[in-house]
């Protein structure tokens, strides 16, 4: 991996942040159904000031994941989030592509 790629790498960012004393959560796409913007394994990392690096969708649900991540950082309890097609009765945010994703959010110890 070249240096530029490492700079933008979410997991490298998470390690650097944590070592400098920041509280960090890691969000990971673990399952996808239908058309999904990022494959399983994709990461978004968040610190307690809502700084973030990486992505779990094409920008559609990152906002919601970041606010859940702040909760995970303060409680230490991991969360499983699920996002589907935008539908105001079911979801505050959704994926316009019609897919569905499940995102696991955990605190970095």
């Amino acid at each position: 991996m070249n240096e530029m790629m490492m700079d933008l790498d979410p997991l490298v960012t998470a390690e650097t942040w944590r070592k400098s004393g920041r509280e960090v959560a890691i969000a990971t796409v673990i399952e996808t159904w239908g058309s999904a913007p990022r494959p399983a394994g994709s990461h978004l990392v968040i610190d307690s000031d809502a700084n973030f690096e990486g992505s779990v969708s094409g920008g559609c649900v990152e906002g919601a994941v970041i606010s859940e991540a702040l909760d995970v950082i303060s409680t230490g309890e991991a969360k499983m989030l699920e996002f589907g097609v935008a539908d105001e009765t079911a979801w505050r945010v959704g994926l316009s592509c019609g897919g569905r994703i499940r995102v696991y959010v955990e605190r970095l110890g």
Partner: peptide, 25 residues
């Protein structure tokens, strides 16, 4: 995930060694 686990994973990735993270859900 513990920081030490992430450090190991990133060390493998920097060294271009294929690695897997196994998380018990």
């Amino acid at each position: 995930m513990e920081l030490a686990t992430l450090e190991r994973l990133n060390a493998y990735r920097r060294a271009r060694v294929a690695a897997a993270l196994i998380t018990d859900m």
